[in-house]
């Protein structure tokens, strides 16, 4: 889907996604992520149970078209998802790919194997952890817009100002993503075949 040098083609929708996301500072996004993880723990307890087979369930999720990375620790005692501008600590596994692809994977709209076969995703480190995460996430039926954004929506009470602000940013991202998704669903040239 994308050249494998990790750089999106110029003026692609993915680049626009990067631009759209740029103003989101990690400091503002973090409360949103904390909220997301709390929600996930409550709504999808199976998700973490499925990962209990791993001794080190730590992940670095790197959307190659965003200037940030996400650190995920799925250990039941210290579950967290943290956003930062740089890789701050080692993780058992790294999942790298365009944001849209990662979101599709997260919400179970696309098959992890199929994505990897097309090399839209790159995996480093503990492949078992990645496979477990993918299987767990695929089952959980996470719906970012339905579950997470609804909790930020007009009828949800923002916990405090920063969270509200993060929520607005998220809503804007969501709108942008919808637009980008429409653009992405246009026919695209395929990568070279084996």
């Amino acid at each position: 889907m994308f050249p494998s040098n990790g750089k999106p083609p110029p003026l692609s929708p993915v680049l626009l996604a990067g631009i759209a996301a740029r103003p989101v500072s990690p400091r503002l996004l973090q409360p949103v992520l904390d909220h997301v993880m709390k929600l996930l723990g409550k709504q999808h307890p199976d998700l973490f149970e499925r990962l209990s087979c791993l001794s080190d369930p730590t992940f670095l999720i790197d959307p190659i078209d965003l200037p940030v990375v996400f650190h995920l620790d799925a250990n039941p005692e210290r579950t967290y998802l943290e956003v930062s501008r740089s890789i701050e600590r080692p993780a058992a596994a790294v999942i790298r790919g365009p944001l849209m692809t990662l979101l599709d994977l997260l919400e179970g709209r696309m098959d992890g194997d199929a994505l990897f076969f097309s090399r839209a995703l790159a995996i480093e480190g503990d492949t078992e952890a990645v496979v477990a995460l993918r299987n767990a996430v695929d089952d959980s039926g996470i719906d970012l817009r339905g579950d997470v954004l609804a909790s930020f929506g007009p009828f949800a009470k923002p916990a405090h100002r920063v969270l509200g602000m993060g929520g607005r940013i998220y809503t804007r991202m969501s709108r942008d993503l919808d637009m980008l998704k429409a653009a992405l669903q246009q026919p695209q040239p395929k990568g070279p075949q084996a």
Partner: peptide, 10 residues
């Protein structure tokens, strides 16, 4: 081993 961009399998 896969060339840059070549579809990769498990």
């Amino acid at each position: 081993a896969f060339a840059p961009g070549e579809a990769a399998g498990y």
